[in-house]
Amino acid sequence: MKKSCIISHYCQIRDHAVIGDDETLYERCGADLSDFFTGIYQHFDISYPKFYKMDNLCKLGFLSVELLLMDRNIQQRYAGHEVGIILMNASSSLDNDRHHQQTILDRSAYFPSPAVFVYTLPNIVIGEICIRHKFTGEGTFFVRERFDPLFLFNYVNQLFYQDVVQCCIAGWVETLGDYYDSTVYLIEKTGKPDAGITIFEPDTIKHIFAKEK
């Protein structure tokens, strides 16, 4: 019998709030997306100046994983190549694609910039998280119409069973215009499941995703 994996923690950023493991960690109503993200960064005293250069998708993914991993000592517990990152969303990098498109719309004011263009790929958010936490493991970005707990479970589960990862950060990171929504899960191997532990399975993934604050 194969051992189960557990969802050891999760973090959710949606509807003006940050939720970590069922607790509201931060809330700020009325702020626009940019102020809200900056508010989270400042509230949790994160010190990582590169944050300000990121596009909104990377900011959302970065903050979600930052709060997911806060005080978890992941870097001490796993080698870099043992940690995988599997993220998905619906709009890919369209939010920042529009930004890049603005720089090339008018030939008389043509100013495409590498600092914008580099964020026209959705997997850059995985790169930003890897740089921050020194993770060198598996990374894949999937684009799906909707969050699909069963697919996430199947894909991440086989990464564990084929020994590709020992620990996995997986979830949904979507932003487009003023809209943002993220749920990221920290998934680890465990022995016998104890009471109170969240088993990593489609229903628990779905249950957490469907939570409202």
Partner: peptide, 20 residues
């Protein structure tokens, strides 16, 4: 499934397919 992983997308897609 859509895989959008910059310039490694194609090889990553084959690897993903083989793993599934």
């Amino acid at each position: 499934l859509v895989i959008s992983n910059a310039c490694i997308s194609g090889v990553q897609a084959i690897l993903t397919g083989a793993r599934l």
